[in-house]
Design a protein around this nucleic acid. Structure first.
Length: 690
RNA sequence: CGCGGGGUGGAGCAAUUGGAAGCUCGUCGGGCUCAUAACCCGAAGGUUGCAGGUUCAAGUCCUGCCCCCGCUACCA
């Protein structure tokens, strides 16, 4: 660590208390943060590690509405579940707070009021849709209606998914409240804005400087650049909601501060709460209000804009107008996303595994190890259950666990559970000791650069090397032929076991502690200090406890059991074809649909569209234009001349500005394949289908 | 041409500023037997998506093309 800093402040993104944590969250932010913190604690550095639940926002009120309960009840539940899951996972937060606490409301009001007084915030009047039934102003994603451009009837308040155009929610034709389906009304409202645009230059300079100083990750810089390139826009900091921090300005009592404003301030509140518990309630200031603090914010990629741009801008704005100077993030090592079995985690599709479910079946450490070695540090990565099993069995159990076990049991049998004498060193011994000396430093360097995956690999490589050393030393032979050399080899192996406990502690703390305890050493590996992993500190004659199996292997059946219990989670790519048939209709119903055979005369792609083809078809004597979303499956030229089936009496629709007079029939399955419906032999176009 | 990411041995991934294509798993063969049938050694397997270009030298830089993914809902 750079000598400019006296202490380290680490935050991990506040998880939203509207759902359960899953493995992707851990890989994105929490595990790297925890490894980083545990490593620094072992280095005896002054570290404060805070987090907490993000408990405001409209999504939570919607959940409460659905469940016929209060927002507070929703966040109480998820806060407790997530906090508990974090503990089981081994997260070593100094404090895990929550943003619904009065303390946090106070912090948020303090910032808002300061900005307001300084004249930083701007007031703006705007028109917004209001649902009278729900008594709620509708955020963009809670309203849908017909797109004024393409007439697509499920356009959202901010953008039409069909034609891609950006909308103002008041432009929607026939808007509907997505919560209750009622038609909202337009109401005038006033909001405060934070002028992010005015901070752009300073933010760019800030990022450049810190990046130079601490080596920001490339992916993070890329995200920032694209935001800067577009130009930063002012952002509303208030909302018309009842759930959140009330706006502390006269006349605004019915509004709350927008959740993204208060969420990042939760880090400060969490530190305050931590300090308030001690005899020095001001000691949070030592971390937050000092240039001697190295502040590192761990997040996932979707949060880059808030932590690299919005939050620093807030702190700058505060620092401009106050004596107290907050420290800005020195680095924001955001990870990409982790997929589960090559598909994106998705709550709505029920894809992925919640942390708490996972921990019902397997202990935290194998999960920590597998995630650590698969961290999406430079791009999206995958978590595969068979990989989890293989990593646990072949690496944690076989390489690390078995090395510890073979060493301890060998010493137990030959030297009575006491550290044997270190005699004269062979070349091989010297080489091993030299390598041991290098590893802690090497891993340090990687961790300091936020390269956790490489650090973990390097750590496991020490165990690999130790196995080789054991093999090459052949103590089972020297135990009779050269007992002194045998003792020396095992002395060194025991020292390595001790070192492994220290080096593995950030990654698999429970396993590390078990090694430590078995070695009959006091306290914990980190109290010995990271650097001491390079040394031979186990005293000769020191007696240790009876060795036990360190890592239990995972059987196939165990994995299957978990998969079975998650039966609701079928992969979206290969769900069973739904046997659900729509309600019965009469023949008359069917006869309303005029299906006709048509011949394709001309086919071409619709400009600027990925999926659409424009077809000119002949239906008997009539010519029509039909637009079909099959461009991903058919090249236009292969369709010309072929016979297709169209719905001839469908109300015309406009797609990407092209009118479609009818609908082409095509069949698809759940693997994403698609085939157009055609007729089995040559017919005249215009023929009816029945 | 909407924006961005990515295509590297069977699988998952590495490869600072261009400088001998590596790692883990799997496969095959061998060694060892202290240990959780574990550990160690060796081998096979790649024209780094395709086609050009720059260079003494290209996985890496440039141009064109092909394919996959995210940018849309809860969601790191």
């Amino acid at each position: 660590m750079n000598s400019r800093f006296q202490r380290i402040l680490v935050t991990a993104a506040l998880p939203y208390a509207n759902g359960l944590l899953h493995l992707g969250h851990l890989a994105g932010a929490y595990l790297p943060a925890d490894i980083y913190v545990r490593y620094h604690r072992a280095r005896k550095r002054d570290v404060l590690f805070v987090c907490g639940s993000d408990e405001h926002g409209v999504a939570i009120t919607v959940t409460a509405e659905k469940e016929q309960t209060t927002p507070q009840a929703v966040v109480d539940r998820y806060h407790a579940l997530n906090k508990n899951a974090f503990e089981k996972f081994g997260m070593s937060f100094d404090n895990y707070s929550r943003t619904s606490l009065p303390l946090h409301h106070q912090t948020t009001r303090e910032f808002f009021t300061a900005f307001h007084k300084q004249g930083v915030l701007r007031e703006r009047e705007e028109q917004q849709l209001y649902c009278e039934k729900d008594a709620l102003f509708l955020a963009d994603r809670y309203v849908e209606g017909t797109c004024p451009n393409c007439k697509y009837d499920q356009a959202r308040g901010d953008q039409c998914e069909n034609c891609g155009s950006w909308l103002n929610q008041t432009e929607l034709i026939h808007p509907k409240c997505k919560i209750c389906g009622a038609t909202p009304v337009v109401r005038q409202t006033t909001h405060w804005y934070f002028p992010l645009g005015e901070f752009q230059q300073r933010l760019q300079a800030y990022i450049e400087q810190r990046s130079k100083r601490d080596g920001w990750k490339e992916n993070v810089l890329r995200y920032c650049e694209s935001w800067f390139k577009e130009g930063l826009q002012d952002r509303a900091v208030t909302r018309d909601l009842s759930w959140g921090v009330p706006v502390p300005v006269a006349g605004y009592e019915s509004k709350v501060i927008y959740v993204w404003f208060d969420a990042v301030l939760g880090y400060i509140s969490s530190a305050k709460e931590w300090a308030a518990r001690s005899d020095d309630p001001d000691r949070w200031k030592k971390y937050w209000l000092s240039e001697e603090t190295k502040y590192v914010a761990f997040i996932g990629k979707d949060n880059v804009v808030f932590h690299c741009i919005v939050f620093p801008a807030f702190l700058m704005a505060w620092n401009d107008g106050a004596e107290e100077q907050y420290v800005l993030p020195e680095n924001v090592p955001a990870n990409e996303f982790l997929n589960f079995e090559s598909q994106k985690f998705s709550k709505s599709r029920g894809w992925g595994i919640d942390l708490q479910d996972f921990l019902k079946f397997f202990p935290a450490d194998p999960l920590r190890y597998t995630l650590a070695i698969n961290l999406p540090e430079s791009r999206d990565s995958d978590f595969y259950l068979r990989d989890f099993q293989a990593r646990t069995n072949n690496e944690l159990a076989d390489i690390l666990g078995n090395f510890v076990n073979r060493t301890l049991t060998f010493v137990e049998k030959n030297f009575g559970r006491k550290v044997p004498h270190l005699g004269e060193l062979t070349e091989m011994d010297k080489e091993m000791i030299a390598r041991l000396d290098e590893v802690p430093r090497k891993v340090s360097e990687l961790y300091e650069q936020y390269r956790f995956r490489d650090g973990v690999i390097e750590t496991m490589n020490l165990a690999r090397l130790a196995n080789k050393y054991f093999n090459d030393s052949e103590p089972w032979k020297t135990s009779t032929s050269n007992p002194i050399q045998c003792a020396t080899s095992l002395h060194i192996c025991l020292q390595i076991v001790r070192s492994l406990a220290i080096l593995f502690e950030p990654i698999v703390p429970t396993i590390a502690q078990r090694i430590w305890t078995t070695l009959n050493l006091s306290s914990s590996p980190h109290t010995a200090g990271w650097e001491s992993a390079a040394d031979l500190e186990l005293p000769e004659g020191h007696s240790f406890n009876k060795p036990e199996i360190l890592v239990t292997k995972i059987e196939d059946s165990h994995i299957e059991e978990m998969v079975k219990s998650l039966s609701g989670n079928t992969p979206p790519a290969r769900p069973a074809l739904s046997p659900e048939i729509k309600p019965t209709i009469t023949l008359d119903d069917f006869k309303k649909i005029d299906l006709r055979v048509a011949r394709v005369l001309k086919a071409e792609r619709v400009p600027r569209s990925d999926k659409l083809l424009r077809l000119e078809v002949e239906i008997g004597s009539e010519k029509r234009q039909v637009v079909a979303g099959i461009a991903n499956h058919y090249a236009p030229e292969t369709l010309v001349g072929s016979l297709i089936v169209v719905v001839a009496n469908l109300q015309p629709a406009k797609l990407m500005g092209q009118e479609s007079q009818g609908m082409l029939l095509a069949a698809s399955d759940n693997t994403g394949r698609l085939a157009i419906v055609t007729v089995a032999s040559e017919l005249e176009s215009g023929g009816t289908v029945k």
